[in-house]
Write a protein that binds this DNA or RNA. Structure first.
Lengths: 259, 259
DNA sequence: TGTACATCAGTGAACGCGCGTTCACTGATGTAC
DNA sequence: TGTACATCAGTGAACGCGCGTTCACTGATGTAC
């Protein structure tokens, strides 16, 4: 169900003319397509998703506006590429953070905090890209199926952490349960633990709350909803995640005394 | 610090020419300003915040585009009015829901669910208005100070519920605490309980998580991030709020057996 | 009660700007012989 | 190794559209006498 991480499908746009031959024009094509997408990302960073225009991208590259149509079918296609690449960038950031945490012996709450902090850091360094995927949908744009896989990468990392904790018997949510019937799709539960989806009831819903708080808190911070309310955003972010982790049955330890 | 709920400041734009006299032109002005704002809200509902244009509003009213400038200084002013009115609409919905819940004898989790459901219902009926205030900031637009008060209305309702539970001694968050130092502004804490801000440490942070989950879950639902994941959105929404309420020390009771 | 006048709502044209997309073209460049 | 040709990258003009905002105007309407 979930597509592979990594490549964005950019290259697959072009038809390989003769597979074994090496092809200078094709290489130029691919390189320039990349250049255009990178320029578009810069435009996005400066003017936001709603203000992204093909003409501005062309201008930035010192090229006439119609020239970019050699490489990009339409504005919508460009948006799709940017969305997929943003999801993939967030996803691989989170995956690396978790790997680093695991290989330094962390588990449980420490893995969660490592992943969550890496996503927040990414979001703060690229707020418009974060807003592109988690903010208001771009009007008139409908995300295609191909965004589903990349969008699932961070949730999958969180799932893996939950699964590992479950397997080592360290996880049992507080009682009473918030739900006794599953409120999620069988596909979603299967993606977490294929064999025993029944066991996830209640914990699965709590895990989605974790994901919601991770994204929601970053969104609140970036969009100004914590202004005049929260002083130390890094410490608050950790605290917010601890609240939900605790509610999932994680041992959250004692809070750091300093921010 | 927080301004009064209610009036939006629309009328205050106009200078009362002679206070005691009644003034037909002024009445016409106010009425037509309202008509324009209402038409703008309809435009917003159809095309989203980024697509909101004064010319489209004028067209909708069958009037030449320059005519609306008699009533509205600029597109930004119109946006500000719409934002304030959206916050106020959400706020008064939540306040009414809480009043109704209280007067039917509810407390604790039932009040929280009543308020939260009312906000979700509002958001589902007016998704673009919800996105206007909780989605990506409109590019090039900076929200003025006057939005702060209306934006705080729902959080204030939630605060009141927390305060009431605290006063009756029913609330003590799980241990360990997620923070031992306050991560919020003194103003924010004072707005919740003026006299004993120290006592709020840990609970205050958990309360902001409640607000984040309330808004974040609605946002996820409206923006499509629950597609292919959550089946029963109403039941999941309740469950998500129960997770955080439980983490605040509320007695959440048993989950409803049916969705 | 009637009339003159000041106010001001709405018009229409314009300015200067931006957008996505198409299309016939020219000239460089890679490829096949 | 040299040349002819097909490919195709990038140009420039254009189409048709939309936007926010300004400004001189005209004619209706409320007000003051």
């Amino acid at each position: 169900m979930l597509s592979q991480p990594g490549r964005t499908g950019l290259a697959s746009t072009s038809v390989p003319s003769s597979p074994a031959t090496f092809n200078a024009r094709q290489i130029a094509r691919d390189t320039l397509t990349r250049t255009i997408v990178d320029a578009a990302r810069d435009e996005l960073a400066e003017h936001g998703a709603a203000g992204l225009s093909l003409r501005a991208v062309a201008r930035r590259l010192g090229v006439v506006s119609s020239a970019v149509y050699r490489y990009i079918k339409s504005r919508d296609e460009l948006l799709t590429v940017l969305i997929i690449e943003a999801y993939d960038a967030i996803g691989s950031t989170a995956e690396s953070a978790d790997e680093a945490a695991r290989s330094s012996g962390s588990d449980g709450i420490d893995r969660i905090l490592a992943v969550a902090r890496s996503v927040r850091d990414w979001a703060r360094s690229r707020p418009q890209e974060f807003a592109l995927v988690f903010g208001s949908p771009v009007p008139g744009y409908r995300a295609p199926e191909s965004t589903v896989g990349p969008a699932a990468r961070v949730p999958m990392v969180l799932s893996a952490i939950v699964t590992d904790e479950l397997r080592s018997g360290r996880l049992s949510p507080p009682t009473p349960a918030v739900t006794t019937v599953p409120l999620t799709t069988v596909e979603a539960r299967a993606a977490v633990i294929g064999e025993v989806p029944g066991e996830l009831t209640d914990l699965m819903e709590r895990a989605i709350v974790l994901w919601t708080v991770l994204v929601g808190t970053i969104t609140f911070e970036l969009f100004g909803h914590l202004d005049n309310v929260v002083t130390d955003r890094s410490a608050y972010y950790d605290a917010a995640l601890r609240v939900v982790a605790q509610a999932m049955g994680f041992d959250i330890g004692e809070p750091r005394p300093d921010a």
